[in-house]
Design a protein around this nucleic acid. Sequence first.
DNA 1: TACGATAAATTACAGATGTAATCGAAAAGC
DNA 2: GCTTTTCGATTACATCTGTAATTTATCGTA
Lengths: 124, 124
Amino acid sequence: MKSIPKISETEWEVMRVLWGKSPLAAGEIIEALVAKDQSWHPKTAKTLLNRLVKKRALGYDKEGRAYFYRPLVREADCAMAESESFLDRVFGGSLRPMLAHLVERKKLSPAEIRELKRLLEGKE
Amino acid sequence: MKSIPKISETEWEVMRVLWGKSPLAAGEIIEALVAKDQSWHPKTAKTLLNRLVKKRALGYDKEGRAYFYRPLVREADCAMAESESFLDRVFGGSLRPMLAHLVERKKLSPAEIRELKRLLEGKE
DNA sequence: TACGATAAATTACAGATGTAATCGAAAAGC
DNA sequence: GCTTTTCGATTACATCTGTAATTTATCGTA
């Protein structure tokens, strides 16, 4: 059973790049990050890559000079872990109050509501 | 527009006590925390109370020796803020993938599913 | 082969967090 | 009134995070 390392807010952005496509060299990852958000600094990105490797959320294959990173954990598993932690913390572990809350407070578009309904169709 | 302070994981447990009932004296809060989880240390709880006051998430009325704490922010507002941050980080800001994910991965009970459906009824 | 460009490793540093211990003042008991 | 107990205030300290800069090893080039 591989345990899911705790991934911080900014680390998630890095992971998302690699989940989208991997393996990638550090330079390519940084490019992708900067593309999404101008304010990313290469050095910062490198630090995060190192930390994620240390946490064993990423692995890499080195080819001479360059490292090619790839995820060691699946996005779905991380999402699951985060969801659990979030639900416990904020809504006492239960999905219903959260949905109720979001439906009330966020203005969901009619399209979104139909979408959610469709998701639940067929289930049960 | 009062901004919502960022409340950490353990701080949430403290806040939840006060949201449940307030004002309460430090001692009563600590009692409640220990009741839920034996491993709470009084000193730790006190530290968190201070930090929450500093963050302006809690206020207090002092009556002689004792302080009576009460929330300065509403649970619903904090829940909202956390939800936003969580959705952005993990599911790219959108509710649908999260629901999809939870419906797939967590086995929602039929009762829960009906409940969710009912929630969406009438909306739209 | 020495030199400059690169990429990775190491170091930096402040603020947040988890987890308390210690100090100080006030209240309560002797 | 002096002492002990209590409660709040201050201090401690390691780890995690965000955000980089500096140092070192390496590769291609002159």
